[in-house]
Nucleic acid binder design. Sequence first.
DNA 1: AAGTGGATCAACCGCCCACAA
DNA 2: TTTGTGGGCGGTTGATCCACT
Length: 342
Amino acid sequence: MGRGRAPCCAKVGLNRGSWTPQEDLRLMAYITKHGHANWRALPKQAGLLRCGKSCRLRWINYLRPDLKRGNFTVEEEETIIRIHGMLGNKWSKIAACLPGRTDNEIKNVWNTHLKKKVALREQQHKAVAAAKSDGAASGSDAGTPVTDSSSASSSTTTNNSSGGSESGDQCGTSKDPDASPLQLEDIDVSDMLVDAPAAAAQKPMLSSSCSSSSLTTCIGGVEDLIELPVIDIEPDIWSLIDGASDATAPCTGAATSDEAGEAAANNWWLEDLENLEKELGLWAPVEDPQAHLPDLLDHTGLGPLVDSEGDPVSTYFQTGPDNAETELLDVELEPSSAAVVL
DNA sequence: AAGTGGATCAACCGCCCACAA
DNA sequence: TTTGTGGGCGGTTGATCCACT
């Protein structure tokens, strides 16, 4: 079927490589207003000389407002290790369990250090097992975590607390060599979460609400069973992203967030935007954010990258919200969200 | 201070799957 | 049922960063 199909885009005349701040702005502005129903059509409509796939990846891996930045926590790492032990390189499924993390990010962190960590752990486990079999003839427990001098203290605790025997343990399943990824590849992690609420209640991997990326796979109800560090997304932001009408705050079963947490979880990219504006000498305390964007675009020299006729983004960029054929950002925002609209 | 090698991460590539015509 | 299209996924690459010598 898909064989021999033409590439997703004629790569002639398109920008490649790193994204410029201007491109980021354009993409964010467009998606914020119009959503991303059609990735292939999006670049043209947004006035971007990029492949649709490239736009999609940029958005998903970097620009999405609900992304969590910074180093992975020990809990997150252990979650990755456990799920990877069950599913293999199903990065998107793993990412679905880690709100705010992308499959690409998880893949990178796995390939860079978690893989080594696991290898070391298995090595130590084998050594311990060998020692045991040499000494007492006790059956080696494949699920018994091995103490890891570097970071296994937490993992050991986690694994022990999970007790490797729960059948529905979506994360606590030990790295059972018999559990091949093939057998497990169809497992929907969220199903496991639902099937094993008791076990789930102990799992750090569940200790988070759901991100947009995991929206369709995240579980309802589990939040009721566990104490969740809340990573909430401003409903307004979801409204913006999803086109305002049918937006649903993702898995807001734990919607009783404190605002500081929300801000921390959601504002990194707003800060990036502010930083960008500062770099460009545009930054000022935002009193009228919607009036701010045109200045930014003026200063960045963002002209229409494509024919701007009928392009609301270009129109907006060139003339500002008052004159835009379609108002770019028509969602009223709370002050805390003001930076979303630049 | 300069050079080097490893680590990290953003981005790209190509295949696969789901779905609509 | 077949075929084309769009989107998603996993693997890989290349640029940059950083620690070490």
